[in-house]
Design a protein around this nucleic acid. Structure first.
Lengths: 211, 211
DNA sequence: ACCTGAACACCGTTCAAGT
DNA sequence: ACCTGAACACCGTTCAAGT
């Protein structure tokens, strides 16, 4: 019951245990309160012990990001044209980010640091190996992550009274677009970019001359 | 010359001085090293003195964000149709974020917390007061901020060797789209969404029944 | 009006040493 | 192989008190 010493006998932890605990703790306390010390406490271990399992907090968060993103991957039965696959992956990414507290912020920085692979890019590349796939993936990923990050931060701020400052807020906090606006924008981004295969980025070196 | 006591006589600081110094320090050391203690040192003042000028570090960063974003605003001579104005503002936002170290990260969180106004939203709303303007502004803002954040983080990581981990990187670090791809994507996002005025978000309450 | 000094309650990370 | 204990070098913020 007590948070200290939940593992009184030799029961050692694996790296997976550490990542699991981090994800659970993230959902309970949020990213700002997810510290190595707090996580150690949760696992009944000194903070320094965590550094046997992971090289740094950033690496730990990258593992957490990978867990969050795993179900986004393209699967059997998904559309196989660029435009519709982009919408499917974007919607799935959105769902996954919303499924965990501060999910968008955690994933955003792991993605930016290149410590986790982007499932949208990976998925769309299997459908279309032209540079257009990356451009669509960029647009969809940044839109979805941006909207979700904004949304989650606002919720957190509203919850803990940080709101009402420089910017005049409408009562409902003006936040994210309504669900149908999100869906519509996602579809339009994909529709706007996907069909456009002209020489987007001849800057890429001669990689796939045949395609 | 010495960083301590550059203000030996009574010379007191204004809030503007503090924000100015924060922006200069940001450019020199980057966001991770921009601490209240370091900033106090730079101003020849105890860290606690800063709290007379700003309520919190977050508020300080919001002021810094406002300075960064100020020149993005729509001005005379700018296009007055939604699609072209969106591209102009997006390009301008990109330039401003790139003009300061970690600009995208600083602005991103101030924007998400609602502590600074979005110049893209404000600008486009003067052109078109339908909900479509907000949807275009969302897409453009999140795309530009996302791409720039990604780009700046990768540069920083590459510079200080954090790269080469989980994800296989191409030698050139695969980073942001080539400049022309960025331009193209921005144009396509605007072109994809702007013309689409159908009932995006009837969720918004009856605000502008005539328009 | 603006600032000092001291304190509170924290951080991530390293590293010798233990089992 | 996995962990402890102690330390290093920091954080943001508060608050009485000074001028």
């Amino acid at each position: 019951m007590s948070p200290r010493d939940p593992n009184p006998r030799g029961a050692r932890r694996s790296k997976d245990d550490v990542v699991d605990a981090a994800l659970v703790l993230l959902d309970r306390v949020g990213l700002p309160d997810l510290s190595m010390r707090r996580l150690g406490e949760e696992l009944g271990v000194q903070p320094s012990a965590l550094y046997w399992h992971v090289a740094s907090k950033q690496e730990l968060l990258a593992q957490v990001s990978a867990r969050i993103l795993a179900p986004v991957a393209l699967r059997d039965g998904d559309p196989d044209d660029l435009e519709r696959a982009a919408v499917t992956l974007g919607r799935r990414l959105h769902d996954r980010l919303l499924a965990h507290r501060d999910g968008a912020e955690v994933v955003s920085s792991s993605l930016a640091l290149g410590l986790v692979a982007s499932p949208v890019h990976d998925g769309l590349r299997t459908i279309d190996d032209s540079p257009a796939a990356d451009v669509v993936a960029d647009a969809v990923t940044h839109y979805v992550v941006g909207v979700t990050f904004h949304d989650q931060q606002r919720r957190a701020a509203d919850a803990w009274g940080t709101a009402a400052s420089t910017v005049a807020l409408s009562p409902e906090s003006a936040a994210a677009p309504a669900p149908d606006a999100f869906e519509a924008a996602l579809a339009l981004i994909a529709r706007g970019i996907a069909p456009w295969r002209a020489d987007i980025g001849r800057a890429s070196d001669a990689a796939a001359p045949g395609a």
